[in-house]
Simulated assay, not measured.
Amino acid sequence: MHLTTLLATYLLLILPASAQFQFFEQMFGNQQGGPQSHQPQNMGSDSVWYQQQYENARCDKFLCPQTLSCVHFPHHCPCPFPAVEDKIEFGDGSMACVSKGGWAKGEAGRKVELARKGLL
């Protein structure tokens, strides 16, 4: 019983000190003589990562190729960057994401329609 009390007291003294040193190691990067430098990790220049994500995606409906979203129909796919893209749905059930154009809302859609008619 006395050994258990001694061990518990020892742990109560050692664990907070250990946690304190771990905090400082993380804060200062566990390096000697300077701040921690973070090197960016570049993605590969091929499509292997995307292909792996696509193959591992589970969808029993339609898997959107740009966003890997699972939707009922292809024209329901979201644009990957909705803040800067407008979604244009075509009558044949397909869609496209195009860069937002100009200042007027829906201007990209109007330009696509003009292009489809051969007027742009």
Rank of each mutant, 00 (worst) to 15 (best):
G118A: 15
L120I: 07
T4G: 03
P80D: 08
A8P: 01
G102C: 03
Q51N: 13
D86I: 03
Y54N: 11
D60E: 13
S45T: 07
S94F: 12
Q51W: 11
Q32D: 06
I88L: 08
H75L: 15
M95W: 02
F21Y: 13
P35C: 07
C79S: 02
K100H: 04
Q26I: 04
K105M: 15
C77G: 00
G34Q: 07
D60M: 10
D86G: 05
L6P: 01
F24M: 11
E55K: 11
F81T: 14
P65S: 15
F23L: 09
G44P: 04
N56A: 10
E89C: 07
W103S: 06
T4I: 12
F24H: 07
W103D: 10
T5P: 01
E55H: 14
N56E: 13
E85W: 00
Q36L: 15
T9P: 01
Y10C: 09
F73E: 03
P82I: 04
Q51S: 15
L6K: 07
K61I: 05
F21G: 06
A17P: 00
S47W: 06
S69C: 11
A83C: 08
V98D: 01
L114P: 07
L119I: 10
N30I: 04
A104K: 13
A96I: 02
P35T: 10
G101V: 02
G34W: 02
P82C: 04
S99A: 09
W103P: 00
C97T: 08
W49C: 03
Q36P: 02
F24S: 06
C64Y: 02
Q52W: 15
C59I: 05
A19F: 12
E107C: 06
L114I: 14
M1A: 15
D46Y: 08
D46I: 09
M43F: 04
M43Q: 06
G33S: 11
L120P: 00
I14T: 15
M27E: 03
R116L: 10
M43C: 09
A17Y: 05
I88G: 00
A83N: 12
G106C: 04
T5A: 07
F90A: 09
P40W: 04
G102P: 01
Q32C: 08
Q22L: 15
C64N: 10
A17S: 14
E85V: 00
G101M: 03
C97H: 10
L15S: 13
Q51H: 09
H38F: 15
S94D: 13
C79L: 04
K100D: 05
S45R: 13
A17I: 10
Q26L: 15
F23Q: 06
K61C: 06
R110I: 07
G118R: 08
V84M: 05
K87N: 05
P65M: 05
N56Q: 11
Q41G: 03
C97W: 02
E107R: 05
Q39H: 14
P78D: 07
V98Q: 01
G44V: 03
C79Q: 01
F73C: 06
E113N: 10
L13H: 07
Q66R: 14
K117I: 13
Q20P: 00
T9F: 11
Q36N: 12
D86N: 09
L15C: 09
G34F: 05
Y54R: 14
Q39P: 04
R58T: 10
H2T: 13
L13G: 08
